[in-house]
């Protein structure tokens, strides 16, 4: 089996605090891997390490066999490591079509073109429409992003990432803040992710995790507590204690 994303003994310290403690995770290609853990377990730090927002104190990150530990943020995206954000990071003044078209242009290497209109490339339009259709955004593709319902914005957040042509997709709490009535849309959006794209899902909503993931890692106090299938994790008493117990109290 091919390995898509791998971290080896990843450590990140902030002063005396160890935010990421010797984390080694392996995601095979096409995996639907979820990362769970209570608040403050270091999930955000891990994402920031993977995407190059902050450098690790030690350890390595491999993307499809290539060492990307020191690669720049835009280089990682070029190589196919793309993320979504827990809090929407969209272009409020753009339409979804414009947003997706820009991301597609970037992937096709056209983004440095300064002279031809963005709409003049047939491939950009076709691939943008593919993504828009896949995430059920056709009706709103020419609306102002800022005016979209929250659930649609969450979908667009994922759509933009897919438009970047990821090999590995990091989904940071895709359902965060989505009202109950619009959750179905998000689930459909996740189900529509291309099968060959490897997904690392960070999520609080256990319902969503259990439905979507085939493997789960549990992060506690910066380190990996255990890893296993959905059944193994949901029945593990330690997980129930440190995490699921918390979730019930929420």
């Amino acid at each position: 089996m091919n390995t898509a994303l791998e971290t080896r003994n990843l450590v990140r310290r902030f002063g005396g605090l160890v935010a990421t403690n010797d984390v080694s995770i392996t995601l095979r290609q096409g995996a639907r891997h979820a990362l769970i853990g209570p608040n403050g377990a270091g999930k955000t730090t891990l994402i920031n390490l993977l995407t190059g927002v902050i450098p690790p104190s030690s350890g390595t990150i491999m993307l499809e066999g290539q060492d990307i530990t020191t690669a720049s943020r835009s280089r990682r995206v070029e190589l196919g490591l793309v993320r979504t954000f827990q809090i929407n990071q969209l272009f409020p003044g753009f339409t979804p079509l414009q947003t997706v078209a820009l991301a597609v242009s970037r992937r096709l290497g056209l983004d440095r073109n300064m002279f031809r209109p963005i709409g003049s490339n047939r491939r950009v339009i076709e691939e943008a429409v593919d993504v828009i259709e896949r995430f059920d955004l056709v009706d709103v593709m020419n609306a102002n992003t800022a005016s979209l319902p929250y659930g649609k914005q969450r979908l667009l957040e994922i759509a933009v990432a897919i438009a970047c042509g990821p090999r590995v997709l990091l989904l940071d709490e895709p359902a965060a803040g989505v009202p109950e009535g619009e959750r179905g849309e998000i689930m459909d959006g996740l189900a529509a992710l291309p099968a060959d794209v490897t997904v690392l899902l960070i999520e609080h909503d256990m319902d969503l995790v259990f439905r979507f993931a085939d493997r789960i890692s549990v992060l506690v106090q910066g380190g990996l507590l255990l890893e296993g299938t959905v059944a193994e994790i949901s029945n593990d008493p330690r997980v129930r204690e440190v995490y699921l117990g918390d979730a019930v109290h929420d």
Binding site: S74, V77, Q89, F91, L102, V160, A161, C164
Partner: peptide, 19 residues
């Protein structure tokens, strides 16, 4: 468009791989 994108949201712009 990518320059406008920077103005709209620099974080997202870098996340789609635009320097």
């Amino acid at each position: 468009w990518s320059v406008r994108a920077v103005k709209e949201n620099a974080l997202r712009t870098s996340a789609i791989g635009i320097p």
